[in-house]
């Protein structure tokens, strides 16, 4: 998929994943890159930006094997943003679908 497409939506995806529960960088990257074709690295700048915007907070948690993991937690502000962005995304995709459908119908009508 086109890179510009993905960029804007990945924030939304990361927020959605964190809504389900706190998670650490590798886990978020793994979850996302299984479903969307992208570099694992991309997740980290996004997490960092979300943290600096106050949409997620971080804390360290011991892991069973290896050094403590940095966990990300969705803040209240983050939940608000997620709701707004999700609504906007839904409206946007509906509109795009509508336009694509119209186009298809027009073409079918002509031929």
């Amino acid at each position: 998929m086109n890179n510009q497409f993905k960029k804007g939506v990945l924030d939304l995806c990361v927020l959605t994943i964190l809504k389900k529960g706190d998670s650490y960088g590798y886990d978020v990257a793994d979850t996302l890159s299984r479903k969307i074709q992208m570099s694992d690295g991309t997740v980290y700048p996004i997490l960092r930006k979300l943290a600096s915007d106050g949409l997620v907070s971080t804390y360290l948690k011991e892991s069973q094997n290896g050094p403590p993991r940095k966990y990300y937690h969705l803040t209240e502000e983050g939940e608000k943003r997620l709701e707004l962005d999700k609504k906007e995304w839904d409206e946007f995709t509906e509109a795009v679908k509508g336009i694509l459908e119209d186009e298809k119908n027009d073409k079918e009508g002509i031929s």
Partner: peptide, 17 residues
Amino acid sequence: AQLGDPSELAAEYKEGM
């Protein structure tokens, strides 16, 4: 390889920060 090109990653960091 899965992380992607380091210079691209650096650019993404800079863009965000």
